[in-house]
Design a protein around this nucleic acid. Structure first.
Lengths: 209, 209
DNA sequence: TTATAACTGTGAAAAAAATAACAGCGTTAC
DNA sequence: GTAACGCTGTTATTTTTTTCACAGTTATAA
């Protein structure tokens, strides 16, 4: 039995950042990169980068640092599922549409395959390249399209209900844009993207430093 | 000399959450609340709540817990500036518009007073209740309207340039939606809201747990 | 009045995360 | 060939954050 070396949430986030950076470096035709370069570009320390990379078990060379292509590949093998993971978006307002625009085609291994909205005008239309279904078809679509991840982009008052539907449908990874703290059973992971809180924090630190 | 008891970024974020919750409780006409209730509703431990509240120096009673109104007020005095803090938004695409809709009128002490876009079609129009200016007026508007906080909602490739303009104009608190790691001088606070990273994290933990 | 109960505020302990420190190792320079 | 260099991988240390544990407090009830 393989020892499930636990990797922290923080590290996963940084690995995602490093990968984005490597993608850029590849575009710039850079072949090798040192931990301190990655560090500089992603705003962390070199030691942290090396420590994070320990987690995925890719080794660089002491002379040339890391091979950009191989490191990118290693991180991808670590972060991505072997097959594509399908994603559902609930809430196709401005924010939902921004999410669709923004995330579509960005990651080859993550695909938003269905959107849901309660507005009848939107239902059964294709918006930003994504078919919009009524909410009552959620569970069916999740099952049919093997959806594993949900994005909540509805008003705060509706977020918990949407979340409950997601969890009941078997979704275990959720990105929540709504201004609400979601109650979920253990085993379900919620990523919080709370504009209101972030703005308040930024405003606070703009004053206090 | 007053000892500047440093309060962690994490704590600031939670205080913002608690306040939102208290606002809800007030609407429900709840008068008193215990630390374990706040904890339950915001998904943290009771000890954490009490410790966070230590930071703002508001004391509850051992019998009735905290007075909802007074605690709300205390957190607000702590988080908010005495006067309104003005905010500028750069990038009025789907996301920018969602941000405008979403944040306008939500916090009395934070007001988005100007939007900026390079698209001439949008410039000099009022979008979602906010006047849109061309980017070259940024510094002037910041000065004129005493803007302290900036929100970046442009594509990743333009984010650093926008950020530099903000910093040069004296802004010290930034909310960044763009998929880019911003370089800023010390003293400038950047709040990261990165959809791509969040989605990847959610997808990872949906698989791994 | 005195005992009971349930909470807060906070020091102490534990856990988690970040940083520092350094041994070891290919390259290069001489 | 070998000394010196500058990097990685990893252990040790420090710092930060969270949790625990409990003394102290205030209402209530007998």
């Amino acid at each position: 039995m393989i020892k499930t070396s636990h990797i922290s949430e923080r590290t996963i986030g940084r690995l995602s950042l490093y990968r984005r950076l490597l993608h850029q470096l590849q575009a710039d035709e850079k072949v090798n990169v040192f931990s301190h370069e990655i560090a500089q570009l992603s705003g962390v320390t070199a030691a942290q980068v090396r420590r994070d990379l320990m987690a995925i078990g890719y080794s660089g060379s002491s002379v040339h640092g890391y091979d950009v292509y191989q490191l990118n590949d290693s991180i991808s093998r670590f972060l991505d599922a072997p097959q594509i993971q399908n994603v559902a978006l609930v809430g196709v307002g401005n924010l939902g549409q921004a999410v669709l625009t923004y995330l579509s085609g960005r990651r080859p291994k993550l695909s938003i395959v269905a959107a849901f909205d309660k507005n009848p005008v939107k239902v059964n239309r294709v918006i930003n390249g994504c078919r919009c279904y009524p909410m009552n078809e959620f569970a069916a679509q999740v099952q049919q399209q093997k959806i594993e991840v949900g994005i909540i982009a509805v008003p705060g008052s509706e977020a918990q209900a949407v979340c409950d539907t997601m969890v009941a449908s078997g979704i275990r990874g959720i990105v929540n844009f709504a201004p609400a703290t979601l109650k979920t059973p253990t085993g379900v992971h919620v990523e919080v993207l709370d504009m209101a809180v972030s703005l308040e924090k930024a405003a606070y630190f703009a004053r206090i430093g």
